[in-house]
Design a protein around this nucleic acid. Structure first.
Lengths: 143, 143
DNA sequence: GGTGAAACGCCAACCAT
DNA sequence: ATGGTTGGCGTTTCACC
């Protein structure tokens, strides 16, 4: 993992359709060498996969919210139950004012209410506090 | 935006390296037609870009935290000042117990302290409450 | 909008340096 | 790690439907 690897990752985060010829030129290597480095980054799991970034609002998910979940038991074991709720995009065990923090996305506030109902249905959940996002200033990939 | 478009988006989220021939076969279209649909989805901004998913821990960002920021003024105007802090991955204006919610990632708790210092340096910031992530149960793309 | 085929360009694999 | 070469596949475009 040197600076060239980091440059390659940055370039691919910006645009994963770039050819190895272009990548190589950008970092001062041949296309073959660039290709080999990227292959190893994938192999080692540093690059997990190549994917697309989708405008969620265009898909009808206009509302984003964060939900602080309080639990009476260790909630780490409830990961599967939470994962079964499709509107949950992220779930983290946290240190602080709750047990788990969820990021959820759905069409509107009516659907948000329904998501909260399902979260309450997970074993051990004793309460939730919801933070509704009014405007996303930015969501980006780190350099 | 019909079901075929949604299927194409789902397939590309899973693996954006799939060929148009494969995509077409999966949704029951020719490769040319699949190509045309994806081109239009990009043109309309539904697909923002194709990118890679990176293991942040492998890049030395082992600690994730959420920071609730209190402000004395309308913080939406501070987006540029916040964006200048590279460790901030997301920034949202929220309804609830603070003005802004940040998602931050960095090497360790020492660096977290330094990020908080810089957040305090942004005009209008009167306080912060930090939620440290102990374990990420999942971070995924929505179906 | 979709089809099918043809032309082009890029990737992947090789090897000698 | 380079640079040249080759084969094969995917992308892109086109006339046609």
């Amino acid at each position: 993992m040197d600076d060239i690897d980091r440059m390659l990752i940055g370039l691919l985060e910006e645009d994963a359709t770039r050819s190895y010829a272009v990548l190589g030129k950008a970092v001062g290597l041949s296309s073959g060498a660039a290709h080999e480095r990227v292959r190893k980054l994938r192999e080692r799991g540093v690059i997990r996969r190549t994917t697309i970034e989708v405008d969620q609002a265009a898909l009808g998910r206009a509302v984003t919210a964060y939900v602080l979940v309080d639990g009476s038991t260790w909630m780490g074991d409830s990961a599967d139950r939470l994962a079964a709720i499709p509107e949950i995009e992220e779930a983290h065990v946290i240190a602080g004012p709750a047990s788990v923090l969820l990021k959820v996305r759905m069409a509107g506030t009516v659907e948000l209410q329904d998501v909260l109902r399902r979260v309450f249905g997970v074993d051990g959940v004793t309460g939730t506090r919801t933070i509704v996002v009014l405007e996303t200033l930015f969501e980006r990939t780190l350099k």
